[in-house]
Design a protein around this nucleic acid. Structure first.
Lengths: 200, 200
DNA sequence: ACATAAACATACTACTTGGTATTTTTTAGT
DNA sequence: ACTAAAAAATACCAAGTAGTATGTTTATGT
């Protein structure tokens, strides 16, 4: 029983170190050797717990990456309160409060979406899953906003949801190119205007 | 003189094959060997014309990638006519008319932005350059639209420009995850609504 | 205490990578 | 025709890659 626990601890250690290296240096350029050097464990230990780099990659996406999006972008949508204010809080304030590091490194999910091979179906499904969770939660919030009369009723919830997500992921990529926040501030101004347009 | 021409032809051949492979399989996973196999030339030929893979990458970005964005997204903005209609034409119709391949592979520029290392300054500058060209052209069009009274005067041109670009690049990444156009169509509905909000 | 299996380590393989050194072929100017 | 340089080919290297084979250590159930 203590063995199972240790095994789980090791897997978590590997996943965490792997996520950090993927985020820092990209998925393809991060080797198993580099990951296991970080854990101070050996390559043998890795292949005892995982059958391939791909299996690890899928676990990093479905556990680590997904959890971050759920905690940062999805759960806050489900809290009670004015739907419009929640959108403002989640999309605008969250963007403002990102650390310099997060601004420079971009969105872990978006990085993976655009780095990982376009024919790597398994990764795509895992990533699409996260997007779908996010979209669904956003649609629910927008529907709620319509009912509570804080958001316009003549807008398509799905359309607004995917438009918001696209813009958010888009700017997180573009921001990486700059060494200051100018482009982010312009985006925030554009986003603020957009949110006003869907507000009652 | 004919030698210079041949040299230029060879470089163009290498750039074109490299761009295609980068677009198809990503930058990092495309080796010089693979590129030169496509050209049916040798590795010696490559290193006669380029001093490193990095030099080639920068040329592919500043020549190939940039030209595609200029032709597809920037030059159309400069044509005469109603500013609002041009925005509709360039952003909505262009997205609709993408080939299946272009939908599945995403935007070459966006792929590079999110794949290439966050500490690779030279690449970032080359990519930022393209974004700035695009943004500037969009701002000019929006300003024109304000003057010609087809776009609202109380909007920030820069904010609208970067918001449009972000959303466009964002959806091109997200679309790659799907095997149909559903998410694209929802996005187009969202974008159509947005454009109406900045229309007079 | 002891057998068994899990957890981990070491050493290795076959292959790919960016880049170099050296040679051969082609072209241009005289 | 001859020479010099450009263009391209061949052969190579050291470092890194995912994955395997085979060991050693540690925990667990009896």
């Amino acid at each position: 029983m203590q063995q199972e626990l240790k095994s789980e601890m090791t897997k978590q250690l590997i996943i965490n170190k792997a996520f950090n290296l993927f985020y820092e240096n990209g998925f393809k350029t991060t080797s198993i050797d580099k990951i296991m050097k970080e854990t101070t464990l050996s390559k043998g230990a890795f292949y005892h717990h995982y059958k391939s780099k791909k299996e690890l990659g899928l676990e990093v996406i479905s556990l680590k990456v997904q959890k971050r999006v759920v905690n940062g972008m999805i759960l806050p949508l489900k809290e009670s309160g004015n739907a419009y204010q929640i959108l403002e809080e989640v999309f605008i304030n969250r963007l403002k409060e990102f650390s310099i590091h997060e601004k420079e490194q971009g969105c872990p999910m978006n990085n993976l979406i655009n780095e990982i091979g376009n024919n790597e179906v398994a990764y795509q499904i895992a990533l699409k899953n996260i997007i779908e969770l996010w979209k669904t939660a956003l649609v629910e919030l927008i529907e709620r906003g319509k009912r509570e009369n804080s958001l316009k009723k003549d807008i398509s919830s799905k359309a607004v949801a995917i438009y918001l997500i696209s813009a958010f992921e888009g700017i997180r990529g573009i921001r990486k190119l700059y060494d200051n926040d100018s482009v982010l501030e312009e985006f925030l101004s554009g986003l603020t205007f957009y949110l006003k347009q869907i507000k009652v």
